[in-house]
Amino acid sequence: MFRKIVVPIDLAHADRMESAITVAADLAKLYGATVCYLGATTPTPSSVAHSPEEYKEKLAAFALKEAQVHGQDVTTHVVLSHDPTATLDDDLVKEVDEMDVDLVVMATHVPHIGDRIWASNGGNLARRTKASVCLVRAAG
């Protein structure tokens, strides 16, 4: 059913990612798919990392931790965005297309602050890419 599952990760709100990560891991086991964490960062220092390199390392470390929790290999992929406020949607669509993804599993939540980063991106991905999109609300 699915070969490649991508989970967009917001490292600034890593605590809100758990439900989506669990769903992705379970689906991957069910269908024998691979899982890739997709992160976006800026060329300028951000609250998460001082450079794109550091971001890459942090995402890899996060993936390693989750891989151990769920007993499953995880790859990572980083997108560099000049102006995420304006173009994150487009950047995600482009990456998902290029990565030839079957399924995107995304964290989303009852509207609050984190929404601006990932919320509407899910709908946008479903509208503009071939991939299936599964939006997962944070538990509780």
Binding site: S51, P52, E53, K56, A63, L64, G71, D73, T75, M99
Partner: peptide, 26 residues
């Protein structure tokens, strides 16, 4: 479990030596 890096895809990330300032500020 190991993770592996998909370096063959997406925008190549700039890297190389630079001298970061150590500060407690986030």
């Amino acid at each position: 479990m190991a993770t592996q890096d998909e370096t063959d895809m997406g925008i190549p990330l700039p890297e190389g030596a630079s001298d970061m300032i150590e500060t407690d500020y986030t």
